[in-house]
Write a protein that binds this DNA or RNA. Structure first.
Lengths: 324, 324
DNA sequence: CTGAAAGCGCTTACAG
DNA sequence: CTGAAAGCGCTTACAG
């Protein structure tokens, strides 16, 4: 059988409750006793029993990570990356991670409810934002701690979330292109939904106006054309790849004829030439911050919702160039 | 407070032990009593407490999923896809999933050991195969149940694993190209390590020999050249993309000048034209089978190691064509 | 077919 | 600073 707290207690000549206190490094216990107990734990190879601890303390010390209810999450490196980061940060704080996936919101909600009601998790980190859905409503109503990665479009003041500054991201793309002398710039997107799009595009427009440049919004489809733009801002790496392909079809080369800047710095940005100039959104930091905020919020009943902004970084590669 | 087994017992007018038996649908309990107890559970909204169940039963009903100790796992859609499939299959069997990630084998092993020794998991599904490592050794030595996704290069007879038939996958690629009249075919790879490479390449060679065709192995680098091959087999979608790019540099078009077939059917196979003819390796099935085998093996002390072969499917797209 | 009791391995007031 | 005791919510021999 595995060694328990009692075995340790006996070996160290103390009571089990003392061992328990040593485990949580309680300040009540004298250093001398702590040392003695720790030695016994070492010698015996003691490992706590997670289930017993959870049952007795009522705290699971595990976070449920909720993936979006879509089937293409595998194609977005974002999710695996942030999961890794969340898991590793969590481990540093001695907490575990459970995951909730599903093809529909309904399925997903069932899993979320189950995890919480069976007391498997203390709360959740949700990996998608945008409009409210049943899950967020359920968590809010029941006062279940959670952190959102991204920016919710409703009740922002009641939800702790971590995100990049997408407005600024829109602006900075323009700044970079403007520095390269470009004056006619279009924003290319394949979606017109979601906070990410709205904010990046808003930032784009603001900065373009501020600089008095000529702007346009292009909704991507396979036969879109350019007017006289010399530079483009694309919503993400994958879209950018498709845009490069389309441009080449109509005889335009990136970056010689058209500069292009995009977002995410995923693998897609550097498989094919031209490697893309893109903003790295620091996914590891997003994940780490989400965990920390979750811990803050679940440990402090008086914690007030807040937004954490994670910095980004421009990765200069081959797709942007000074206007000829 | 949450409703417990006792509350249900009281409401149904039975003993707590009876409720427990009803939960596991024990055949010892009469249908009448079951109905009565179930009604009480319904009325009260009873949910089991996972920790209590684990502590009392000694079974965690959770599987640890071990990711490879590399940092680019996010770029391979495989991992997120199989994780989703594992999680969803597990849920159908009422088991949970924990994950272990790490940048080095050492870190990873620590996490694996911890999860097992703290009794958080009953065993593991390992998402990478190839050569043995400390983790596999540790599991084997300690008789900890696990299933491998992929084919181990050592002790195959002692390890339950699920995989595609990579040899056949090599052969079938040749068959498809041969049917299209190609006679000079090269196998392109950017790695010469691992079972996957070895088996696919072996299958390729065998079939080429059988058909008496002219074969070659090309190690991919950015300035590789073709001799007189008219068709290629590439190790995976991403590599294939790079090969297409290189071919276009030297004036060769896929599929007009060169046909190309590849593996995985990931997102990379259908972002840019030519969309790639590729083998879908049925990742969902790999994940589902891994879970089922794990359950078989962890529930039956006499279970003998076995290999499960998951079928694949040729996805015809734009990159292969009859030889002109 | 069902109940009473012990036990799983911890935590945490309470007392001193 | 430490101990003794009760309790967390289940499961599972044992008995009838």
């Amino acid at each position: 059988m595995a060694v328990t707290i009692k075995d340790v207690a006996k070996k160290a000549g103390v009571n089990a409750s003392t061992v328990s206190r040593v485990i949580k490094d309680s300040s009540e216990i004298s250093d001398k006793t702590k040392a003695k107990v720790r030695k016994a734990m070492q010698d015996l190879g003691y490992r706590r029993n997670a289930a017993a601890q959870i049952l007795a303390s009522g705290k699971t010390n595990t976070i449920g990570v909720v993936f979006p209810p879509v089937s293409d999450k595998a194609s977005q490196p974002f999710f695996m990356k942030i999961l890794t980061s969340i898991n590793e940060t969590a481990r540093d704080y001695n907490v575990s991670v459970a995951i909730a996936t599903g093809h529909s919101t309904k399925e997903l909600k069932k899993q979320v409810e189950l995890q919480y009601s069976e007391k498997r998790v203390d709360g959740f980190i949700i990996l998608y934002a945008g409009k409210r859905d049943e899950i967020r409503d359920y968590l809010l109503e029941n006062d279940i701690p959670f952190v959102l990665v991204g920016t919710p479009s409703e009740r922002q003041n009641e939800i702790t979330h971590v995100d990049n500054d997408n407005m600024l991201l829109g602006r900075e793309a323009v700044r970079h292109l403007a520095e390269l002398q470009h004056q006619k710039i279009a924003f290319v997107t394949d979606t017109t939904e979601g906070e990410v799009y709205e904010e990046r595009y808003q930032g784009f427009k603001d900065e373009m106006n501020r600089l008095g440049l000529t702007k346009r919004l292009i909704f991507f489809n396979k036969d879109f054309m350019l007017e006289d733009e010399t530079a483009l801002v694309a919503m993400d790496d994958v879209l950018a790849l498709k845009v490069v392909e389309r441009l080449s079809e109509i005889g335009l080369k990136v970056p010689d004829d058209v500069s292009m800047i995009t977002y995410n710095n995923s693998i897609f940005a550097s498989i094919l030439h031209p490697y893309l100039t893109t903003f790295d959104i620091h996914i590891e930091q997003l994940g780490a911050a989400a965990v920390k905020k979750f811990l803050d919020l679940s440990n402090d009943k008086n914690f007030l919702p807040e937004k954490t902004i994670i910095p980004f970084e421009l990765i200069l590669r081959e797709s942007t160039k000074i206007k000829k």
